[in-house]
Design a binder for these strands. Structure first.
Lengths: 213, 213
DNA sequence: CACAATTTTGCAATGACCCCAAGTTTTCAG
DNA sequence: CTGAAAACTTGGGGTCATTGCAAAATTGTG
């Protein structure tokens, strides 16, 4: 049974603080809520808040939700004979088609995105997370293709794939923030995905085929 | 006649504060220098500093240096029969070939980039400026092509072109920060530009030709 | 030179975030 | 079950960016 009570309690406390904070932010906006208020509402000290979250932004954008390695995971899990970009597009299309909350396609996402849109600090943080996603993708591509350190291709490919991904996510976020219907946004995102695939060159779309020299 | 002394003095003061601040940042790092120290070194009050610069980061990254509309300008000034992306690549290649300080190819840029690299706030700010550059480019593309509001192409094209530009600038910055020789970095950047052009699809490379339907 | 528009400055707050030392709680060996 | 070690929480006390306000100093004009 190993790590029991302590770990469980920590996880619960962390989650609780984050939930309370999210509620306040959605209700009154990111800047209008102070960390002290979050602490009070969650019935802990300010120090405890900082004990769990390195910065105020982390109360809202919890990086631990397995988003940072999404693209890398999709690439590593691509089918035999499938190139990296195709795999990412396929997985992304799948999520969008399924109107999955993992890509923001659920009604509650509107409130979430509105908070982000009005807080520069959160937008900036979202970008930083995107950078991490891309760095992980680049690492995955290097491993998968066995590219040397001097090879600039993994970086460029990760840039193109990361761009496609973040562009789709940005549009979904923007439209959802307007209060649009998830299904409608899903349909538009699928069209956008087609447009994007059309824009990517064959070089990009055929890079890192699983099972090549 | 016209705005004389007052305006001149303001411009000079602003420049002086920025210079003093830059010097301190390069010498000791962005985070290690407080705004109060900058104020004291420039012999003005802290309030005066904030009177000229909205935030500490602006002391180092002065957005007014005409970078925000660089891509839009290049596109608007493209040759007859030339597509937007080609124009940007041509102009950028020109700057890089000329080892121009406008793209960071001068020895002093190393110190500058090192300050940026160690300060997340500055990196984040640089990204925000990049967003502005891209937004201006998108606007230019919309005007030049007369695309409707519902057309997603200008956004996507601006994304691709902006990506190419920022990728090159990022590599130049990274290499210069290592203390590399500007001419060497210029050569590498030219190779990178070739790689990037190879990666862009014909659709991107032929978008917004000056003088089309 | 005197007056009005601007700028600069001092003073006081707010709020994020950090450090430390003093409790508290949980774990675990004995 | 018990006492000490390990891990958490908290209160108190800073530093620093950023802002609001009103008094004081400057500058352009008539």
């Amino acid at each position: 049974m190993a790590e029991g009570l302590r770990e469980r309690k920590k996880r619960r406390t962390r989650q609780y603080i984050s939930d309370v904070a999210t509620g306040l932010f959605v209700e009154r906006g990111f800047d209008a809520v102070t960390v002290a208020e979050v602490a009070e509402a969650a019935d802990v000290s300010v120090n405890t808040v900082y004990n769990y979250f390195p910065a105020k932004e982390d109360l809202f954008l919890d990086r631990s939700s397995g988003v940072v390695d999404r693209l890398a995971r999709w690439v590593r899990g691509r089918d035999e004979g499938e190139p990296a970009a195709r795999a990412v597009l396929r997985e992304l299309r799948g999520e969008v088609e399924a109107v999955s909350p993992r890509v923001g396609l659920f009604s509650g996402y509107a409130a979430f995105m509105r908070v982000v849109e009005q807080a520069p600090a959160l937008r900036s943080r979202l970008w930083a997370i995107g950078q991490e996603v891309q760095a992980n993708l680049e690492a995955a591509l290097r491993e998968e293709t066995g590219a040397g350190d001097g090879d600039p291709l993994p970086q460029l490919m990760a840039g193109q794939i990361g761009w496609a991904h973040s562009t789709v996510m940005a549009v979904i976020g923007r439209e959802m923030a307007k209060g649009r219907n998830p299904r409608e946004v899903s349909r538009e995102a699928l069209d956008l995905l087609d447009d994007i695939e059309d824009l990517l060159s064959e070089k990009v779309l055929n890079y890192a085929v699983r099972g090549a020299a």
